[in-house]
């Protein structure tokens, strides 16, 4: 997890398209420039970055479902609940569930737990659009591969 680079997911641990679910894990770093401001002397992961973490897990789930033919962009957050503080070195278990894959959009709900305790959850809406160019698409596919996206869901499989 590199908060300042918006790399929120460390690894994808499972993808089950029949169930419409992706699981992932991350560990909050001990140090980050983000903690210098949020907050001095009381480092906490900003809630917006927890939303972003759930959005990225959902995004990889949506791209697995469409075989990386289109990229989801977050356009809506509903019923977001940030239930507890998240401190450095916290291990996060992230689960994203695909509620609906529409034409040009998708809806998910996602949650994050740590030690079995729910930290946050929300419903997310994404607009899905073609990748702006092949280079960008290859970068996103490569990122998915690095995180452990099963090859079945990557292009060319």
């Amino acid at each position: 997890m590199h908060l300042e680079y918006f790399q929120m997911v460390d690894r994808i641990t499972s993808v089950d398209l029949a169930a419409g679910q992706l699981s992932a894990q991350s560990t909050v770093p001990e140090k980050s420039p983000v903690f210098e401001g949020h907050f001095p002397g009381m480092p906490l992961v900003p809630g917006v970055l927890l939303i972003e973490t759930m959005a990225q897990a959902s995004g990889f789930l949506i791209m697995a479902a469409n075989r990386f033919t289109a990229m989801p962009f977050l356009v809506g957050v509903k019923q977001g609940k940030l239930r507890t503080f998240v401190e450095p070195q916290t291990a996060l278990d992230i689960v994203a569930d695909l509620d609906h894959e529409g034409s040009g959009y998708a809806v998910s709900h996602a949650s994050i737990k740590s030690d079995g305790k729910k930290i946050c959850d929300c419903q997310l809406t994404f607009k899905t659009m073609p990748f702006p160019d092949d280079k960008f698409a290859a970068m996103i596919v490569g990122r998915g591969r690095e995180l452990g996206m099963p090859g079945d869901f990557l292009p060319g499989s």
């Binding site: 809506g76 609906h100 529409g102 034409s103 040009g104 959009y105 809806v107 809406t125 607009k127």
Partner: peptide, 25 residues
């Protein structure tokens, strides 16, 4: 456009369909 996405989602769910918004657009 954002409210329309929510409306299409609700219609898709209500009627069990997938409105082909991309094709229509």
């Amino acid at each position: 456009s954002l409210d329309f996405l929510d409306i299409v989602f609700a219609i898709d769910k209500e009627f069990g369909i997938k409105i082909p918004m991309e094709a229509w657009t």
